[in-house]
Amino acid sequence: MEASFGDLKKGQKNCQRTVPCQYFAPQKIEEALEILSKYGKEIKIIAGGTDLLVQYYDRLYEVSAWLDLKNIEELKEIKIDQNQIEIGAMSTHTQLESSADIKRYYPILSQAASDIGSPQIRNRGTIGGNIVNASPAGDLLPALIAYRAQFKLVSHKEESIVSAEDFFLGPKKTILKFEQLLSKIIIPIPEQNTYSSWIKIGKRKALMVATVSLALVLSMAEDNKIIQEVKVCLGSVASTPFEIMEIREKMIGRQFKQLDFNELGQLVEDRISPIDDIRGTKGYRQEVTKNIMINALEKIQETWGQSQND
């Protein structure tokens, strides 16, 4: 009886997708910009696809043209010199996680990359995609702002450089125009005595969208005792990742060992007004933000304390 059905897999292929669509995968950035200027809003730019294909799940037929950046080698390079690092927008999270230069100069960018999704996601997802997608929970974004990253935006007509903190306008909203591409991320090499800490809170260890995240980058003066510069940036507690500016006056110019961690934690909590959503309530986020600010300072104290003993 079973045999009457024959091969249960013989019918493949008749489920072919039929809706027409165009696809471009240029080798050069200039070609990509030409295509962009021609198709404008009609074309979808695809990098790693780990956000885009989730958004378009079950409605890929709505995309009438794709611009795939996979063949543009220049977008995959990570270059470093004495003053800065340039990270091509197509660099994957796995690259960020494993790059020796990034580990050395921007340890929390590397850690944030290693906290993203899963091996499968990190192998495909890119830094450029993470930025352009502009999720309030985007894992790389607080660290990028804290390290004073700048983004290079290019179009067929012009190029510009913009600071990370000026780039994000709201959830999924940025200043990027439809004819523009984000080509690279430029980050200055941090000062000698720079310490940093990254904490991401969520419900599990993998494949987790942050409920709250915090990036703290702090540099000391030459004496390695007085704070010269600090940035505390938060994710998932507002419509964009952002810096708590009020922290600066409480920390810059002070002796690190005289800081009141509790007070600073409270200050961070007082400066945020998160929302309730599926990942956490407002109250939970406020309390946790305060705690992770304190934890971040404690972590820095540990490494800084070691350098004091040496």
Binding site: L8, K9, K10, G11, Q12, N14, C15
Partner: peptide, 14 residues
């Protein structure tokens, strides 16, 4: 192993 989703017939409709 064939799970329901792995079965395909000719002229199958969705």
């Amino acid at each position: 192993a064939l799970y329901p989703d792995d079965i395909y017939f000719k002229d199958m409709l969705y």
